[in-house]
């Protein structure tokens, strides 16, 4: 047993680094996720051909793409622990809050990396003009944090169930919906060369905070039997 007691921030960092290291060794989730993103993007681009899409439809496509990419990979943080049987060790060593926020941080970083890959390709394939880059980036970051926050807590739920992957999408969508709708509308405004209201951005940020606080409150019930 380690005799040094780490504080919460160090614990969160340690959990995140552990997940990062495991991921770096196998590179399973990252490569699967990136290939999934590439294929869904290519399928969209091929199926619409040279037709130009209206801005609101493009925004909706972008977020549907990001959502399903997240659904393909983000449940892994808990599902993999359950499948390899390491979850009991983690329950012994890590406090619930550290595990939740460590995994959340890891998911946020994964999703942001994925977004950084998707966005240039999306602009390239679909011939999109982005008018307000700085606001666009803020919207993307807030939307990604929202997707990661909603899917980390549902990943902890589906880890114990049968049929994990299908269930993961079903459970995450209703929880994510307010954030999802507001990211689509903010992105559509940006693509139409209209600056989104500050209230739209604030709503997204507030929803992220509420989602994280709520997951932090209920997570202990999931983590400790």
């Amino acid at each position: 047993m380690p005799t040094i007691r780490l504080n919460l921030l160090n614990c969160i960092w340690a959990i995140m680094m552990k997940d990062g290291l495991c991921e770096f060794r196998t590179r399973y989730a990252v490569s699967a996720l990136f290939m999934f993103a590439l294929i869904s993007l290519a399928s969209i681009s091929m199926s619409i051909g040279a037709a130009s899409l209206p801005a609101d439809l493009t925004a909706a496509l972008l977020w549907v793409l990001l959502f399903f990419c997240a659904m393909a990979g983000l449940s892994r943080v808990f599902v993999q622990e359950e499948e390899s049987g390491t979850i009991i060790a983690l329950q012994l060593y890590g406090s619930g809050q550290a595990v939740l926020f460590g995994k959340l941080l890891f998911n946020i970083i994964m999703l942001l990396a994925l977004t950084m890959l998707i966005i240039p390709l999306f602009i390239l394939f679909l011939n999109v003009d982005i008018y307000h880059w700085s606001i666009f980036i803020v919207v993307l970051i807030l939307g990604d944090i929202g997707i990661a926050a909603a899917s980390t807590i549902t990943a902890a739920m589906v880890a114990k169930t049968q049929g994990k992957n299908a269930l993961f999408t079903v459970l995450t969508f209703p929880i994510l919906l307010p954030q999802f709708l507001s990211s689509i509308s903010a992105t559509a405004k940006i693509l139409m060369n209209v600056k989104p209201d500050i209230s739209d951005i604030l709503f997204m940020a507030a929803y992220n905070v509420v989602l994280m606080i709520a997951s932090s409150i209920v997570f202990d019930y999931l983590w400790y039997d």
């Binding site: 114990k160 929880i175 919906l177 509420v210 209920v218 019930y221 999931l222 039997d225």
Partner: peptide, 26 residues
């Protein structure tokens, strides 16, 4: 669907209660 996919009774009760609360929040 979540309820029907968990076998163990206590676990099912716990996880689905958490989901009911979270979805209520939205």
């Amino acid at each position: 669907v979540l309820r029907s996919s968990i076998q163990e009774e206590k676990e099912r009760a716990r996880i689905s209660a958490v989901y009911a609360l979270l979805s209520f929040l939205t």
